[in-house]
């Protein structure tokens, strides 16, 4: 996707090391990235850390951004940061749970229990939540969601379908056949 000329000039200034210009980029994309990271990580502090890291990496790599809209590029970095942050946190939780020191973390629910959407969303993996957040919150196409998460389109279709089915199962919603 090509940039609009005004944004192109902002990015050009960023490449020249203009930090004020970069703050314009933060203003333009920051809120949506933070909201998406929060949907994936389910934790405000972790989401803020992921977004901070996203912008710091973007600043360091701004030279590699070609003449394209920085939105998808920032999304890719933010998704990588968010999923990595989630896995780091849950590795620790898994280890502590294994030794019986902590009983938090992902809750197991019985198949009979029907949860509301928020709690059902908690039950998905970080990769599934990222797919759902990009497709249903950011309204990205399946192709663009696949690009942001760096997976083949067919894998993304299957991931979205699986995640939706799990949400339906958890909330007790019926699938409407076409």
């Amino acid at each position: 996707m090509l940039m609009d000329p005004a944004l192109g000039r902002v990015i050009e200034r960023c490449r020249d090391g203009d930090r004020d210009a970069f703050e314009e980029v933060v203003d333009r994309y920051g809120l949506q990235l933070l909201r998406t990271a929060r949907l994936i990580l389910r934790d405000q502090a972790l989401a803020e850390d992921a977004v901070q890291e996203t912008f710091l990496r973007a600043w360091q790599r701004i030279g590699s951004l070609r003449d394209e809209d920085p939105g998808p590029w920032l999304n890719r970095i933010a998704m990588n940061e968010s999923i990595s942050a989630y896995r780091r946190r849950h590795r620790f939780q898994a280890l502590t749970e294994r030794f019986g020191r902590l009983s938090g973390g992902k809750r197991e629910v019985s198949s009979e229990a029907h949860l509301d959407l928020a709690h059902a969303f908690d039950q998905l993996s970080a990769e599934q939540r990222a797919a759902i957040a990009l497709h249903y919150y950011q309204d990205l196409s399946v192709e663009d969601t696949a690009k942001a998460l760096r997976v083949p389109v067919d894998t993304m279709k299957s991931r979205l379908k699986t995640a939706l089915r799990r949400l339906r199962d958890l909330t007790g919603s019926e699938e409407i056949s076409a």
Binding site: E48, Y137, L164
Partner: peptide
């Protein structure tokens, strides 16, 4: 419903936190 729920949940964050903007500014300084 899912789309509406996600928008509703996401929009609980009304604005980009000033402290986060400050942390990013510090990081690139």
């Amino acid at each position: 419903d899912l789309r509406e729920h996600l928008h509703h949940e996401a929009e609980e964050i009304r604005e980009f936190p000033r402290r986060l903007r400050g942390r990013i500014r510090e990081g690139i300084a």
